[in-house]
Amino acid sequence: MRMLVIGDEQDLASAIKKGLEMEGFAVDIALDGEEGCHLAEIHAYDIIILDLNLPDRDGLDVLQHIRHLSKQIRVLILTALSDTPSRVKGLNLGADDYLGKPFDFEELKARIRALLRRDLLRESPLLTYGPIELNPITKTATCAGQQLTLTRKEFAILQYFLSHPDQVISSEELVEHVWDQHADPFSSSVRVHITTLRSKIRSIIHANFLNTVPGYGYQLNKQIEELPK
């Protein structure tokens, strides 16, 4: 999952980024509305945390711009606790939720989880492919009934593949959705993480869960879809 924090309070934005990265999210920061709009145009974000109090343009204008780009991105707006009119306008313009400042980080995490559940609970929240089962809410994954011990990045990679079971996923696409804006798309990081993830799953089912598609990327191995859970 990739998120964008738009807000001019650098200490607050950095604290949010650090906390959410500890939860396994890739997080970018924009310190003004123009940069936020630009990043929203060039990257595919799952959630945007938008502070309405921006130095260069009205936060509600930024919200409208984001909604013009996509109706699917979840947007959580930050406002002063006493600013009820802005909260109401934001919700009417398409924000999915709001949080008043100052706030407790645990509440922010809870609201983010609630936003993610809105999509996941339309169907079963579990992502499954053959013997592999992943729960995005509890952050757990199993293979043939055995617990997989994964790093945050490995979990995010596995979740992305299970969410796109029939697609060939390039390294560039993984960087776009699983890493933050400072990732080097030409580094070997994707290959190293996939090699480790393959090894952990192969130790249980003795088969590659990912096939390499030369010149294009990686795709889930359809043969393991038939393996028993």
Score class of each variant (00 low, 15 high):
18 K>C: 01
10 Q>T: 09
39 L>D: 02
66 I>K: 09
31 L>V: 15
20 L>N: 00
48 I>G: 02
56 D>S: 13
105 F>V: 14
98 Y>N: 02
31 L>A: 11
14 S>Y: 14
10 Q>D: 08
53 N>S: 10
95 A>D: 04
65 H>E: 11
112 I>G: 00
56 D>T: 15
84 T>N: 07
89 K>H: 12
56 D>P: 09
7 G>N: 04
81 L>S: 15
25 F>I: 08
109 K>V: 12
9 E>Y: 11
34 E>F: 12
76 L>D: 03
104 D>F: 05
84 T>E: 12
78 L>T: 06
56 D>R: 10
100 G>I: 07
35 E>I: 14
112 I>H: 00
37 C>D: 06
19 G>P: 00
76 L>T: 04
27 V>E: 00
30 A>V: 08
106 E>K: 15
44 A>T: 13
49 I>M: 11
11 D>P: 01
46 D>H: 12
116 L>N: 10
59 G>L: 02
76 L>W: 00
105 F>C: 09
33 G>C: 09
42 I>H: 04
16 I>E: 07
49 I>W: 09
19 G>S: 09
85 P>Y: 08
76 L>R: 01
47 I>E: 02
118 R>K: 13
76 L>G: 04
54 L>I: 11
58 D>Y: 05
42 I>R: 05
91 L>I: 12
82 S>I: 07
78 L>Y: 09
38 H>N: 12
9 E>N: 15
48 I>H: 01
109 K>D: 02
17 K>G: 02
56 D>G: 11
10 Q>E: 15
71 K>E: 15
97 D>N: 13
41 E>L: 05
107 E>Y: 06
20 L>K: 02
38 H>F: 13
7 G>S: 07
18 K>N: 04
86 S>D: 05
89 K>D: 13
47 I>Y: 01
86 S>T: 07
16 I>F: 08
84 T>Y: 08
108 L>W: 12
45 Y>R: 08
53 N>T: 09
69 L>S: 09
99 L>G: 06
107 E>S: 11
62 V>Y: 00
